[in-house]
Design a protein around this nucleic acid. Structure first.
Lengths: 222, 222
DNA sequence: ACACAACTTCAAAATCTCTACAAATTCACC
DNA sequence: GGTGAATTTGTAGAGATTTTGAAGTTGTGT
């Protein structure tokens, strides 16, 4: 799960990132308006932590732009202002939740989990594709009723494929989704994880739904 | 056994918590709608005491959300209103029992015990998994007919595993179930208790049903 | 206050996963 | 078909997680 922390107080931002990393989220950070716009435009996040008061522009603009572009990243607003006004305008603009500073990291994490749950699965935890069932809560996968144990990266990969099924996904998008945006143009680990995932799925009697698109990436479909 | 007390009168909430703690339940509290939603979403309780009239939202909404998410926490409704209406709508929505304020703490405790008994064991006190028999009343365990004495944490752990058999359980879920939600990201005690539990079970001639899921948690199955 | 049991903390060893690199294969284009 | 680039596959070492044994702390009953 990828999270973007938009927050200008570097210390706070770092401590959030460290904590969320320990909860096995991968985090990017943005410290001003421009960096935030750049990252939200080019990448998809499962959840964005958005500080309203930001150098270079109002944080609500970022929210607005997300909605205009039909992105459906979850948004959790962080703000020192505990004013009802901010809360209301944020939620009206489509933010998913609001948290006033200062807050507990454990509370933050609980709310992020709630947002991601709601956003992705409409209250359900099981996503299916043909004979593959992915339970996002228990992080378990069944194929033809047979339980298949995947490693974390394999699970993330399969989940990403399934939630983008029938669409072509670039290796770059996969890389950024699973590892964040700081990585050279080396896709060796994608190749390896895909190989392992393919093997585990086919061992469970599955057709190979992971189609390679030469020069571009992959597509998950039948 | 974990109990959540959703009640905005802090004094009442505290006295319930103190009393139940003396009966060796572990209690969390929530004083308004949002806190209650957060805790019921992220944690599993054996029984939830639910005050209907709550700042921030109607308590019945919480009940509704529990049912939608297929949680099976037991629910005991507390309300000052002794009106038939409230009682009926609560029970219709799947609450397990109803208690009008003011009430005796001893009566409350008796009803909680009844709910937990019903919920977990359908009137029976013995849960089985293959050659393991867990008697929840006497807190005793038999493996292949041989009595095995477990400590309380070990017993809780085994009970949690058995009642969630064949599902992957995150270390986090285990931690929250056995210790509540205030704990850092340290799982050393889980490791130790699992080690001890495994040893006692295998000493009694059991296969190791406790499977480790690397990076996630455990699964109790064959 | 004492003894005993239960629980937690700590650190090492064992195990598993991820990444990096290299060889073999496949693909698109000529 | 030949060629170079891209992908697949195999393997080993680095890194992270879990297991384990043991020591330290807390709690309970007498």
């Amino acid at each position: 799960m990828k999270i973007l922390i938009i927050e200008d107080e570097k210390e706070l931002s770092d401590s959030i990132a460290t904590y969320l990393a320990s909860q096995s989220y991968s985090c990017d950070t943005a410290i001003d308006f421009n960096e935030a716009m750049r990252k939200t435009e080019s990448l998809d996040y499962d959840c964005i932590l958005l500080d309203i008061t930001l150098p270079g522009g109002n944080g609500l603009k970022i929210l607005e732009s997300l909605k205009e572009n039909n992105k459906n990243d979850g948004v959790l607003i962080l703000s020192a202002k505990n004013s009802l006004d901010d809360k209301i305008s944020g939620l009206n603009m489509g933010a998913d939740d609001y948290l006033a500073k200062p807050f507990d990291l454990s509370e933050l994490s609980a709310r992020i989990a709630a947002i991601i749950r709601r956003k992705n699965f409409d209250g359900l935890n099981i996503i299916k594709f043909h004979n593959i069932e992915v339970d996002t809560q228990s992080q378990s996968v069944n194929v033809n009723g047979i339980p298949v144990t995947l490693t974390r990266k394999e699970f993330d990969l399969l989940l990403y494929f399934i939630s983008n099924k029938k669409r072509v996904i670039s290796k770059d998008a996969i890389a950024r989704h699973l590892w964040g945006d700081e990585m050279g143009g080396n896709y060796d680990f994608i190749y390896t994880h895909i190989k392992n995932l393919r093997k585990k799925l086919s061992d469970a009697g599955d057709a190979d739904y992971i189609k390679s698109i030469y020069g571009i990436g992959y597509k998950f479909s039948d």
